[in-house]
Computed example of a mutant assay.
Amino acid sequence: MQVLTALGEFVTVFMPPEKQELNNILEDLKPPDFSSPSRKLKKEDIEQYWAQWRNLVPPEKDRFWDGMLSGLNNYLGILQDRDRLHDEVVLLRQRNAALRRLVRGTLPDVPGVLPKYPPEAPKYMRAGGDRFVAPCEEVKKLPPI
């Protein structure tokens, strides 16, 4: 039984200074205080609180918000479809531009047989240009509401 006491005294006397500082810090720490007001509530108080909330929102408004929620979930699906279609349109426009460049360089200029394509205008002169489109990757990752 005295071995533990002797070992404890030995460690306190021969402890390195950096570990001694850490040991002092740990001894100075207080245990967490678990006596918050929410822990002192009784079950009846909690049930009464939620019963008040139940009576605060009338059933008509509750149905309204349920309808709003289902409408927003449907709208989210529509927006995701529109984003997918937008990506397809951008890809098809890029392919069409590439095909136009290929065809413009390979077709002979025969008057009356094939229409001559006008030379491609520089990017800064094109109408519309690249429009800003907000990224929708975050929307795709969101779970349904």
Rank of each mutant, 00 (worst) to 15 (best):
V3K: 11
V3N: 11
L4C: 02
L4M: 09
L4I: 03
L4K: 08
A6E: 12
A6I: 01
E9F: 01
E9Q: 14
F10K: 00
V11Q: 05
T12L: 10
T12E: 09
V13C: 10
F14R: 08
F14Q: 07
M15T: 02
P16N: 04
K19S: 03
E21A: 09
L22N: 03
N23L: 05
N23G: 01
N24R: 15
N24W: 05
E27Y: 07
K30W: 01
P32T: 02
D33F: 04
F34K: 03
F34M: 07
F34A: 03
S35V: 06
S36A: 12
P37V: 09
S38H: 06
L41S: 04
K43F: 13
K43W: 11
D45Y: 03
D45W: 01
I46P: 04
I46M: 04
E47L: 14
E47Q: 13
Y49W: 08
W50I: 07
A51S: 14
Q52C: 05
Q52I: 04
W53T: 00
R54H: 10
R54L: 09
L56S: 10
L56C: 06
V57C: 06
P59V: 04
E60S: 09
E60I: 04
E60F: 00
W65C: 07
D66V: 02
D66P: 03
G67M: 14
M68S: 09
M68A: 10
G71E: 10
G71A: 14
N73I: 11
N73E: 15
N74Y: 07
Y75F: 13
G77K: 13
I78H: 11
I78Q: 12
L79K: 11
Q80G: 01
Q80M: 14
R82Q: 13
R82K: 13
R84G: 09
L85N: 09
L85H: 09
L85Q: 12
L85R: 11
L85A: 10
H86A: 07
D87E: 14
D87T: 07
V89A: 13
V89I: 15
L91F: 09
L92R: 07
R93Q: 15
R95T: 13
N96V: 11
N96W: 01
N96D: 08
A98L: 10
L102G: 03
G105Q: 12
P108H: 09
D109W: 02
D109A: 05
V110D: 03
V113G: 00
L114M: 14
K116N: 04
K116T: 08
P119F: 00
E120W: 03
A121I: 06
A121G: 03
P122A: 08
P122K: 06
Y124M: 10
M125I: 00
M125F: 06
M125N: 06
A127I: 07
A127G: 04
G129S: 11
D130R: 11
D130C: 01
D130Y: 04
R131S: 15
V133I: 15
P135E: 04
C136G: 04
C136Y: 04
V139M: 12
K140D: 14
K140R: 15
K141W: 02
K141F: 00
K141V: 00
K141Q: 15
P143A: 13
